[in-house]
Design a protein around this nucleic acid. Structure first.
Lengths: 151, 151
DNA sequence: AAATATTGGTTGTAAATGTAACTAACAAGC
DNA sequence: GCTTGTTAGTTACATTTACAACCAATATTT
């Protein structure tokens, strides 16, 4: 298994990023999957609804950068689990506003706590400076607006 | 679409990492997918074989952290594309050493160049310090050994 | 108002992935 | 030797995802 190239997979950002992302995702998965039988997309939809409050499926698509079919199926699954409800708008019956049920909010609160704890644990492995720079770089790479919370 | 929570998805590392990883992966995909009709796992297998030289499927599993079924199928696909060959070992016919064909090496060289260019482009959006810290953090998160090139 | 386009969302189907069960080759215990 | 266990790799099947076609409601054009 000799060394042929000067370029190492670990130096290739898409690869390294994927490995890091996969590592964390797999680890956190057990919270929403193990505890609540949720899929990643379902957790994301719940997460967004919990963080930003009620919105339409389209809003979630844009915010979470998910394809509408994925959102559609995740919403159906969350609805079947009684974690959210859909309320059609009279002024435009194409739209349906989604909101978490009381149960959904409890699940979100629980997972949100777990997420926070998990995040802290990961950050504990770096200095505050490193954490800040990492965050900044990832935001930039992901192409998120610099100040999305202002919108 | 009001704000319900102090915790933002963009502050949750697994989520942010995934978004960043997805962004880069989707962008780079067009090189191996568009040009050569390869899947991500195929590109990874090719990448590892090109970088480290010939090895068995099992080696790739360990190095690239891929499940053996994924590797098995990727190898079959690359073989069908005439990018690699398998050579059984006489001393242990369970093992088959995989190596790139001349064509495979050319494809690897091309994609390797593209990867390098892509990587440089991404790094150009940060200072050298940021790039170094980002790399360090990702290596740590991914759980890679601190000095795997020594092995 | 009728025809056309657009938008929000769902459904159908093929491709891809994950998991488990399996085969074949070797190793170890008896 | 013959069972039992392990390892490398494949195959089969269920789940998940991607992509396209679709439907219904609204907007736009004429």
């Amino acid at each position: 298994m000799r060394r042929d190239s000067e370029f190492d997979p670990q130096d290739f950002l898409p690869y390294l990023l994927n490995q890091a992302a996969e590592t964390l995702s797999l680890e956190f998965q057990r919270h929403y999957r193990g505890q609540y039988g949720m899929l990643r997309t379902e957790w994301r939809v719940l997460f967004h609804l919990g963080c930003y409050g009620e919105m339409t499926a389209k809003d979630i698509c844009v915010r979470a950068r998910l394809h509408k079919t994925k959102v559609s199926r995740a919403v159906a699954a969350l609805q079947a689990k009684r974690l959210l409800t859909r309320r059609e708008l009279e002024r435009d019956r194409r739209h349906a506003v989604l909101q978490l049920t009381a149960l959904g909010q409890r699940v979100f609160a629980d997972l949100s706590r777990a997420a926070h704890a998990f995040d802290s644990k990961v950050r504990a492995a770096m200095t505050p400076d490193e954490a800040e720079i990492l965050h900044r770089c990832l935001i930039r790479i992901a192409g998120f607006e610099t100040a999305p919370r202002a919108g």
